[in-house]
Design a protein around this nucleic acid. Structure first.
Length: 416
RNA sequence: CGGAGUGUGGUGUAACGGCUAACAUGCCUGCUUUGGGAGCAGGUGACUUCGGGUUCGAAUCCCGACACUCCGACCA
């Protein structure tokens, strides 16, 4: 896209009401707009990143058999009363509102009820299972204190998948697949090395749930990491007994701050029972469906990536989720303006033709400003066209992450 | 929800209880300049979050509300 058409602008000053690095940079670079504490609008660049993250997750979910759908944001009181989670005494962070006729409804704050209620209508036989529906959706939580920029909001976008299996055994097979799928996701968005499968409290149906914790001081959780085995224990369940039961060596565990970028959880029959979500087995006997839940907060993931890779000059996106792959900078001088513009436009169109996403800085600004913006916005590759490059017949290519600059011809540019 | 702090042009800041609320940046005009946020000139833009109070006089002091940030509790 032409940057002259991008209505957002960068700013030099950090917003005074943000301390967290992710929000500060994302606002300065024009990715997001703060509406209120814990609530952000996603501007064109920000939405672009969210979509990229969404695509990465969607692919992995589909690969393990996930089927995408979308549950409603407005939630019925009746449905939630079945699991005893409507009352504010039980769930204290509901956003609730009223219908004109006086009926009370809630804004979705998680999806177990919605899925169980829907699936009850379609699951009758063992032949219908297992199934793995999921959605991407806005979730609302009336947090008493939101913080850390987009990493903990009152409104956030997540992916939630629910598994519906015949029994625990079948569930476990899928659960293990999801561990792999999640690992792939975090690998692809560039935080694989820093993300640890973490044992956390499991609730009623399993000893542990599993969190994916990315190491960052911006995180809110404390975990104990075993570097060799690539696993960790959340402080909330940490004890000598747990360490022993997992076969870990207490001496090797290192305490780290981390952020939970995903979690997978065995629900068992906790939701299927109240909804009477059962199926008939081969013998015609009714059996409760065995469930699991698998969530990833996309905004939090985006914020985590910013926190982990940003440098003093701005954001540094991994290629997989950068809003554009290339930042094409044209630097026009008085004499060669037309030649540079023609060459830039030509390259812009060739790149687009080759399927490369490009942010083309066609604005009439000075070099320093354009470079500063490019660093702040953080696209992986910066290509500069100017009198100089024209004279050499080469392009200047700079890698945002490593910072190395080289002059390349068009063929090599396209190779890279 | 407990504790602490803050609220001033679009943005970031300044202003002892006392002149027409200042500076920077942004934005607009013109000139000049063109490889790391240049320069000059002119211009635009704030009833100082809201509501009360004290005072001859309030951005400034007091009370209340709201908002935002941080620490804690809680949570993906």
């Amino acid at each position: 896209m032409r940057q002259s058409k991008l209505f957002t602008k960068t700013r030099k000053d950090a917003p005074k009401d943000e301390v967290s690095k992710n929000a500060e940079l994302l606002i300065r670079a024009g990715y997001i707009h703060k509406e209120m504490a814990g609530v952000y609008s996603y501007l064109p660049l920000g939405l672009n990143v969210m979509k990229k993250i969404e695509d990465v997750i969607r692919k992995e979910m589909n690969d393990v058999g996930g089927i995408e759908m979308k549950t409603s944001v407005l939630q019925s009181r009746e449905v939630w009363e079945k699991t005893n989670r409507w009352s504010d005494d039980v769930v204290d962070n509901w956003f609730k509102t009223k219908l004109k006729n006086g009926g009370e409804i809630g804004l979705s704050f998680t999806n177990e009820e919605a899925y169980s209620n829907i699936l009850k209508q379609y699951v009758n036989s063992y032949k219908d299972l297992p199934i793995f529906p999921y959605d991407f959706k806005e979730i609302f939580r009336n947090e008493t204190r939101s913080k850390s920029g987009i990493m903990r909001g009152r409104e956030f976008y997540w992916k939630a998948l629910y598994s519906f299996s015949k029994d625990e055994e079948e569930h476990n097979v899928f659960y293990e697949k999801m561990k792999v799928a999640y690992r792939n996701i975090f690998e692809k968005v560039g935080i694989g090395d820093l993300t640890y499968l973490t044992f956390a409290s499991g609730g009623t149906f399993s000893k542990f749930s599993h969190e994916f914790q990315a190491i960052t001081t911006a995180g809110e959780d404390i975990i104990y990491v075993d570097e060799e085995r690539r696993v960790a224990i959340n402080k909330e369940v940490y004890s000598d007994e747990v360490v022993r039961s997992l076969g870990l060596d207490k001496e090797k565990l290192v305490e780290k701050k981390a952020v939970e970028v995903g979690n997978i959880f065995t629900l068992g029959t906790r939701f299927s029972e109240p909804f009477d979500l059962t199926y008939k087995n081969e013998k015609g006997e009714g059996r409760p469906v065995f469930m699991g839940s698998y969530g990833i907060g996309l905004g939090r993931l985006m914020g985590t990536v910013v926190e982990l890779f940003a440098d003093d000059n701005g954001i540094v996106w991994p290629e997989s989720i950068a809003p554009f792959k290339v930042h094409l900078i044209e630097l026009v001088s008085k004499d060669g303006a037309e030649a540079v513009k023609n060459k830039s436009l030509d390259l812009y169109e060739k790149l687009l033709g080759a399927g490369v996403s490009v942010l083309y800085d066609d604005r009439d600004l000075r070099a320093g400003e354009k470079f500063g913006d490019a660093d702040l916005i953080g696209l992986p590759w910066r290509v500069t066209v100017s009198d100089r490059t024209l004279a050499s017949g080469l392009y200047e290519l700079k890698n945002r992450k490593g910072g190395e600059v080289k002059m390349v011809n068009e063929t090599d540019l396209f190779k890279i």
